[in-house]
């Protein structure tokens, strides 16, 4: 086993492959109005990279969310609708 290849910086997508979700069909987080949101902060701080820009539209992909609440703290209920996935779905931490 070569050790060197473990010692390279992994992209976020590769890190996300380490986790397990049972993704709910219902979207539990939704951007209602991006006006006035700290968009750069959301993109950089959401640990799972759920926020991204498509042109000038803020996209939110809820599938990789770990329900940490950081984006809730950085926004308000009229801009981001935030709730928990139901039926135990969402992130399934095993070790942490």
């Amino acid at each position: 086993m070569s050790q060197q290849s473990r010692l390279k910086q992994l992209k976020l997508e590769e890190l996300l492959q380490r986790d397990v979700w049972d993704v709910d069909e219902d979207r539990h987080i939704e951007v209602l109005n991006q006006e006035g949101l700290p968009i750069k902060a959301l993109i950089i701080l959401c640990p799972m990279g759920c926020y991204s820009m498509a042109g000038d539209k803020l996209l939110m992909s809820y599938e990789g969310c770990v329900e940490c609440g950081t984006c809730r703290v950085l926004s308000s209920p009229d801009k981001i609708r935030w709730s928990y996935p139901r039926s135990g779905r969402g992130i399934q931490y095993r070790y942490t």
Binding site: M1, S2, S5, R6, Q17, R18, D19, V20, W21, D22, Q92, R94, Y95
Partner: peptide, 23 residues
């Protein structure tokens, strides 16, 4: 087993099934 969670380790050439929860 939640097949989405089974990962291929290119380092060792095996499937990593450790800790894969079922659904």
């Amino acid at each position: 087993p939640n097949t989405q969670a089974v990962r291929f380790d290119p380092e060792t050439g095996t499937l990593i099934r450790r800790g894969v929860p079922s659904i």
